[in-house]
Design a protein around this nucleic acid. Sequence first.
DNA 1: TTGTAGGCGTTATCAA
DNA 2: TTGATAACGCCTACAA
Lengths: 361, 361
Amino acid sequence: MVRSTLGTSLGNSGPVGRPDIRQVAAEAGVSTATVSRVLSGRGPASAAATLAVHAAVEHLHYVPSASASSLRTARSMIIGVLVPNLANPVFLPFLRAVEHLAQRYGYSVIVADTQHSAEVERRQLDRLSAQRIDALILAGRPRDAAQVRRLSDAGVVVTDPVIFAEQSGRALQSVGTEAVGDACRRLQFLGHTRVAFVAVNRSSTGAAGDRWRLIDSACQSSGLEPVRMTVPAGSEGARGVDIGRAGSLFDGLVRSPGGPTVIWSNSHVLAPRLLESLALADITIPTECSFLTFGDSPWAAAYRPSISVVTDDLGSAATMMTSAVLHQLGAITALPAIEVPPSIYRERGSVGPAPHGATTG
Amino acid sequence: MVRSTLGTSLGNSGPVGRPDIRQVAAEAGVSTATVSRVLSGRGPASAAATLAVHAAVEHLHYVPSASASSLRTARSMIIGVLVPNLANPVFLPFLRAVEHLAQRYGYSVIVADTQHSAEVERRQLDRLSAQRIDALILAGRPRDAAQVRRLSDAGVVVTDPVIFAEQSGRALQSVGTEAVGDACRRLQFLGHTRVAFVAVNRSSTGAAGDRWRLIDSACQSSGLEPVRMTVPAGSEGARGVDIGRAGSLFDGLVRSPGGPTVIWSNSHVLAPRLLESLALADITIPTECSFLTFGDSPWAAAYRPSISVVTDDLGSAATMMTSAVLHQLGAITALPAIEVPPSIYRERGSVGPAPHGATTG
DNA sequence: TTGTAGGCGTTATCAA
DNA sequence: TTGATAACGCCTACAA
């Protein structure tokens, strides 16, 4: 009989392979079935057997193979998280929340960064599919809905994507709606008329598009004039915005009569670059121009003037999504009745009254 | 024969289970062995067979089970990343780099956040062990070296932890040494004498300890007097530092004769809180006190005065570590001869000459 | 170039 | 309460 060549590759004095459930059984003087029952907690086991098994496990440092278990039980105990762009820090609290909750219930988390590419997304989903993930948490809208649906059809628990659009009915998806309205009303009250929403020029679909629609409609309601601006995407991760160019852009824009009196940054990553551009153009905040951004952080609060934000607490959102997922997976019995954390408009020093005379169109 | 109850749970009209390699074989009119050979690329296969198999795969949306494959081949195609604290944004580029490289070679990445807890770490390592990860990347120093060694003994490729200590010989671990020296020499040149290194009060071992030793010895070489300060750890993730208290702390400290003229923040998360504290105490930077921090970001650059940093490009470090790992795993043949990206002292506006009269001890 | 068959480590069934 | 045993889906040595 060929015991396969695997694991025989090393000399007999080298590190011995991992212990088997059979070795544990032998050491404990019971059958493998008993070991399995004791360790999984499913099925009866005498106190004596339990003790013996645990002793053997300790002694041998036995850790059961997830592959074998998954194969047998058809549950991988893995949750996949599909992130549109891991470079964006907003996903860190998100990921963290998912990971914390997941690990508490014995699940592992596989991160898959789409890198804003349909091709990468396809491969990532294939990989997650291969891993037979029990659940998929979408931190952004997937490019290929069909592939996701296929996973769902195969029994994977799939969440709705976390997006910031107004049109969808789901509670988690409406994140942002109210706060954007609050911000717009407030800007209007302060005498502003024209708002420039600035996003990085990406392949159209994405959070920016959703947010734009959101802002657009909120502005209409408040009688504000929204303007959509894009800055070119630079090299990933480094300094993405050509600051000099953006500086002159703002210079001509903000100072011209009829120009916007509010700059609204689409993302927390973009904001500091825009702020630097404004500083280079010697535009003072909030006297000449108010400023706000999506996404909060200690840095935004520490900046002078401190930066107003519309923020979403993605961590809480992730906790809720993960709870729901774990509930569907049967890991949590009662779904805690937590409300969706509303997004918040947090006004700070960077938003002030519109500069005099700016209200004349 | 009992075909098990799994997969029979749903009615015959519901979503059908995932296709099997046997179904693919049947559809393609070949044997399972041929399917396996075609898909893995290992072993011969005729053009006709290859074509038929691929057609069947497309048609059935077949994705091979990683569990089964792992079980058989003893390779999980999973890389584990152990992070000491996912709340810290410095790990985002790190994680991103690992994930990008890993996925390019077919590996999935499981994130395990230690949450600065030995107990959580143990469970996380157990889980990673259960998943039979092929490699473990340590983004921080593990509490329990023994457990990690056991993984290593079991054949898992384990990296050295990314730490910032001076004592170790490995290139990747020396990240930080030079730059800290640069910063100290520069501070000395600017007339500074006393440097306060501020860290969050954690359970001693960690990057802060390593960095402290690093700074301590670098200061000695430059004739600077280092002082170690800690601020209490607050609720995780929220506002971790009691700003009011820290403010008064700095007030008494910086303004007293013989007090430090440089505040050096241990982390990029801590920095904005300290800055806010300094602002509350009306301490002006860099006139009254210079400021620098570990870890860079667009926000640090955008801050006024812009913040000097000692930064490490953990993304590049992660790329290197992952390359090395993939090399050891046999996924990459030739290890690219990239130099270790040296850490950099990036002086910006927040560091200036020592205030007059401060040099008298 | 292809097919047959056995086993990877675990769990669940069933009989004792 | 326990143990023997048959799968889970895939890979690969070996024979054809």
